[in-house]
């Protein structure tokens, strides 16, 4: 274990949290809550997404003992986040484009709401990655660490997703005009 939770690796934090160390779990939260939020925001509105984050971490705390391989924590947490967000979306009527989006605080501008809708309309492979990058402010390497994906896969997702997003956000007159 590192000298403090601040310096610890994710695997070290997971092992410590499994043993009941709250500080370690709080540090895991600090590292992962934005990625979990992005996963939720890909499927539900912002208000629900915030609830999903807390729900996921409460469940993670009580079920952390089932993680046998600490290095698999990121994938385990993201899978749980996806399931909880999907459950929440289904409870809201199954919609994939949350209607309450514009009612959250801070209220996004019309342009921001349009950008968010455009991201949500992207293929699934790109949605979460772009939300982690553009909404949560995570860098590509940080996304790879938070999701368990390889950096190469994240880079592919970011660039292909961003290309599609640029095309969709471009004014009609310029669409298809770029090589």
């Amino acid at each position: 274990m590192a000298a403090s939770v601040v310096d610890a690796t994710i695997a070290e934090l997971v092992v410590a949290a499994q043993a009941g160390n709250h500080a370690a779990f709080t540090t895991l939260y600090a590292r992962f809550h934005r990625a979990v939020h992005a996963v939720a925001l890909a499927r539900v509105g912002a208000a629900d997404a915030a609830d999903v984050v807390q729900d996921v971490f409460a469940r993670a705390w009580t079920r952390l003992g089932s993680v046998r391989e600490p290095a698999a924590f990121a994938g385990w947490l993201m899978t749980m986040a996806r399931h909880r967000a999907i459950d929440r979306a289904r409870a809201r009527g199954g919609g994939d484009a949350p209607a309450q989006e514009v009612a959250v605080a801070p209220a996004p501008t019309a342009e921001a709401a349009a950008a968010l809708r455009a991201i949500r309309a992207l293929p699934e492979a790109y949605r979460e990655t772009l939300l982690m990058r553009l909404v949560e402010g995570l860098s590509g390497p940080e996304i790879a660490e938070r999701t368990g994906l390889t950096p190469e896969s994240v880079r592919v997702n970011l660039h292909r997703g961003m290309k599609l997003l640029r095309d969709r956000l471009a004014p009609p007159a310029t669409k298809g005009g770029t090589p």
């Binding site: 934005r34 979990v36 915030a50 984050v53 801070p106 921001a112 909404v135 949560e136």
Partner: peptide, 9 residues
């Protein structure tokens, strides 16, 4: 545009 939606709780 979108950074204001980042999770901060």
């Amino acid at each position: 545009l979108l950074g204001g939606l980042a999770h901060d709780a």
